[in-house]
Write a protein that binds this DNA or RNA. Structure first.
Length: 275
DNA sequence: AACTTTTTCAACCGCTCCCCA
DNA sequence: GTGGGGAGCGGTTGAAAAAGT
């Protein structure tokens, strides 16, 4: 269609966000809710394009984002989900409460790819690789980077915890996905549960979309991972506890059991997601 | 201590999808 | 049916930090 860029680049800030900009964006969304990204910067008094605002909010400022170490459980879940879905980061992120697609994508590229290679697995196909002589040096590198990473994450987590204890604001949490028609599962269905392949329920972020909330089979109003539809709620309550993650993981393990016996079913599931 | 290389991850870019007039 | 606009996604980039020499 040949459309213009989302914003005129002239006169707009780019690059790292300043604390003042973060504060303006957070305050605006706290007061008015999400959505209308294109016009949001102007209304919030920000010299940023809407896309940039959305990204900043989604990947960094959102109060339900979990920071800190990716746990072994999450690690494993990401790998398994990737083997099913490929680089569908938003779908994978939707299964891992509190993590963003960007974070998972970065984590995959910087850690899990190496990890899988070290284990002799092709990170793209998830199939066994032939023995690699460079394996040992990779292992050493990984050890180094993990050490560093651990340190960084510990620091950022403590900072985040401090920030969150200061925040505790009320926001209108977004729908995690687009509203879609009955006939298709959206490209990004971050609320989709493994048990709800046939009962996709879309949640809406804007009041307009809320009115259109779709529930295909009258079930799954409250998504089983606790991330279905959000109204106004205390942000801190959205941060998933260990139990939630456990639940997601157990659900996944159930699917894997099915996989053992019914490879075909699993293929169908993956195809249904990718359709 | 100084310089180079590697790693990390926030942010950007370009594209597609979906809705609506 | 068509095109424009908003939103979201995945790939890529580049600055900063860390590690290596």
């Amino acid at each position: 269609m040949g459309r213009a860029p989302c914003c005129s680049k002239v006169g707009l800030h780019r690059g790292p966000w300043l604390p003042r900009e973060d504060a303006l964006l957070t305050k605006y969304i706290r007061d008015h809710g999400e959505g209308q990204w294109r016009s949001l910067p102007k209304r919030a008094g920000l010299l940023r394009c809407g896309k940039s605002c959305r990204l900043r909010w989604m990947n960094y400022l959102r109060p339900d984002i979990k920071r800190g170490n990716i746990t072994p459980d999450e690690d494993d879940l990401i790998i398994r989900m990737h083997s099913l879905l490929g680089n569908r980061w938003s779908l994978i992120a939707g299964r891992i409460p509190g993590r963003t697609d960007n974070e998972i994508k970065n984590y995959w590229n910087t850690h899990l790819c190496k990890k899988l290679r070290n284990q002799g697995t092709d990170p793209n196909t998830h199939k066994k690789l032939p023995d690699d002589p460079a394996k040992e040096s990779e292992k050493k590198k990984k050890k180094r980077s993990d050490k560093r990473k651990k340190k960084n994450r510990a620091e950022s987590e403590s900072e985040r915890n401090r920030a969150e204890s200061e925040k505790k604001i009320l926001v209108y949490l977004p729908k995690p996905t687009r509203v879609t028609s009955l006939s298709s599962i959206p490209r990004t269905d971050s609320t989709l549960t493994l048990n709800s392949i046939n009962s996709y329920s879309a949640a809406a972020s804007t009041s307009k979309e809320k009115e259109k909330e779709v529930n295909l089979e009258g079930e799954n109003q409250n998504d089983d991972n606790g991330f279905g539809f959000f109204g106004e709620m205390e942000c801190s309550s959205v941060i998933p506890d260990h139990g939630t993650l456990e639940k997601v993981y157990e659900e996944y393990l159930q699917l894997l059991k099915v996989e053992e016996n019914h490879d075909h079913d699993l293929d169908s599931f993956a195809e249904s997601l990718l359709a």
